[in-house]
Simulated scan of single mutants.
Amino acid sequence: MTKADFVEFMDGKLKLVRTEYGLTQDKMAVVLGISKKTLVEIEKNRKSLGWTGAVALASIFSGSIVLQDATGGDLDDIIIAIAFRDITVDYPKTWGGKVWWKSLNDEHGYRLQQNLFSRHFRILDPDDRRIFSTFNPEEAQERLTELLQELPKEK
């Protein structure tokens, strides 16, 4: 998933989320920091939230059943995977993928997992810290292989 894909996805969910929370267009516009006119244009598919607006919608309404059902409930991880694409970063500790994740490979405590809804991949270290995220399965497997090769050899 690219930034453009994510923005388009969030544009399409805006009205559903607004309705789910029982917000008027006026109130939703205030929450998102946009004008009512812009919100109306987005809901009519004439304008877009853009990356920043899409991230704001996902973050503010991360508890939305509409968004959780459509993404597997891990919006932060999806945003991180997109935002840090091609950028190396030290990620914080996760819950270890107990919900919405399928473990594809588990070696020496490193786990390659795929989100059951968004289908993106991540690698967790033995302490459940995300060390890599991507939507590319080959890239995920390559990075896991590199990590395993860097481990000290057992005697």
Results as ranks from 00 to 15, higher is better:
residue 27 K to F: 12
residue 118 S to A: 13
residue 61 F to A: 07
residue 99 V to N: 10
residue 4 A to C: 02
residue 29 A to G: 00
residue 155 K to H: 14
residue 145 T to D: 15
residue 18 R to T: 08
residue 25 Q to M: 13
residue 49 L to W: 08
residue 55 V to W: 07
residue 138 E to C: 06
residue 93 K to N: 04
residue 129 R to F: 08
residue 95 W to Q: 14
residue 55 V to T: 12
residue 136 N to W: 08
residue 59 S to W: 08
residue 35 S to D: 00
residue 67 L to D: 03
residue 56 A to L: 12
residue 117 F to E: 04
residue 91 Y to E: 06
residue 129 R to W: 07
residue 81 A to F: 01
residue 105 N to G: 06
residue 1 M to C: 05
residue 98 K to S: 05
residue 134 T to V: 01
residue 116 L to S: 06
residue 14 L to P: 12
residue 34 I to N: 03
residue 20 E to W: 08
residue 82 I to A: 02
residue 135 F to Q: 02
residue 31 V to H: 10
residue 72 G to V: 00
residue 130 R to K: 06
residue 37 K to V: 12
residue 82 I to L: 02
residue 105 N to E: 15
residue 44 K to D: 15
residue 23 L to Y: 15
residue 50 G to C: 10
residue 45 N to S: 15
residue 39 L to W: 03
residue 24 T to C: 12
residue 113 Q to K: 02
residue 50 G to D: 08
residue 122 R to G: 02
residue 37 K to E: 15
residue 51 W to R: 05
residue 18 R to I: 04
residue 126 P to W: 09
residue 34 I to M: 13
residue 61 F to P: 01
residue 110 Y to P: 11
residue 128 D to L: 03
residue 131 I to G: 05
residue 129 R to C: 15
residue 126 P to F: 10
residue 148 L to K: 14
residue 99 V to K: 08
residue 38 T to E: 10
residue 63 G to Y: 11
residue 48 S to K: 02
residue 153 K to M: 12
residue 18 R to M: 14
residue 137 P to I: 00
residue 142 E to I: 11
residue 107 E to H: 06
residue 112 L to D: 03
residue 71 T to E: 00
residue 117 F to W: 06
residue 3 K to P: 04
residue 132 F to N: 05
residue 124 L to Q: 06
residue 118 S to P: 05
residue 145 T to H: 15
residue 113 Q to G: 01
residue 57 L to R: 02
residue 87 I to M: 08
residue 49 L to T: 03
residue 109 G to W: 09
residue 41 E to L: 11
residue 8 E to N: 10
residue 38 T to V: 05
residue 62 S to R: 13
residue 118 S to L: 03
residue 148 L to T: 12
residue 53 G to N: 05
residue 35 S to T: 14
residue 91 Y to A: 07
residue 130 R to I: 09
residue 122 R to Y: 02
residue 57 L to A: 05
residue 7 V to T: 10
residue 93 K to Q: 12
residue 8 E to F: 08
residue 111 R to Y: 02
residue 9 F to P: 04
residue 39 L to S: 01
residue 54 A to Q: 05
residue 144 L to E: 03
residue 92 P to Y: 05
residue 40 V to C: 11
residue 72 G to W: 03
residue 61 F to T: 00
residue 92 P to A: 10
residue 2 T to D: 09
residue 127 D to V: 07
residue 35 S to R: 00
residue 102 K to L: 09
residue 76 D to F: 11
residue 77 D to N: 13
residue 155 K to R: 14
residue 80 I to P: 00
residue 140 A to E: 00
residue 41 E to M: 09
residue 37 K to W: 04
residue 39 L to I: 01
residue 140 A to M: 01
residue 138 E to D: 14
residue 104 L to H: 05
residue 130 R to W: 07
residue 10 M to V: 02
residue 91 Y to C: 07
residue 42 I to E: 00
residue 35 S to C: 03
residue 13 K to W: 06
residue 149 Q to K: 15
residue 83 A to V: 06
residue 31 V to K: 13
residue 51 W to S: 07
residue 143 R to W: 07
residue 3 K to W: 03
residue 35 S to K: 02
residue 142 E to F: 14
residue 146 E to V: 09
residue 121 F to W: 05
residue 146 E to F: 13
residue 92 P to C: 02
residue 145 T to G: 08
residue 33 G to P: 07
residue 153 K to V: 12
residue 15 K to A: 12
residue 47 K to T: 06
residue 49 L to P: 09
residue 37 K to P: 06
residue 149 Q to H: 15
residue 94 T to S: 15
residue 40 V to M: 12
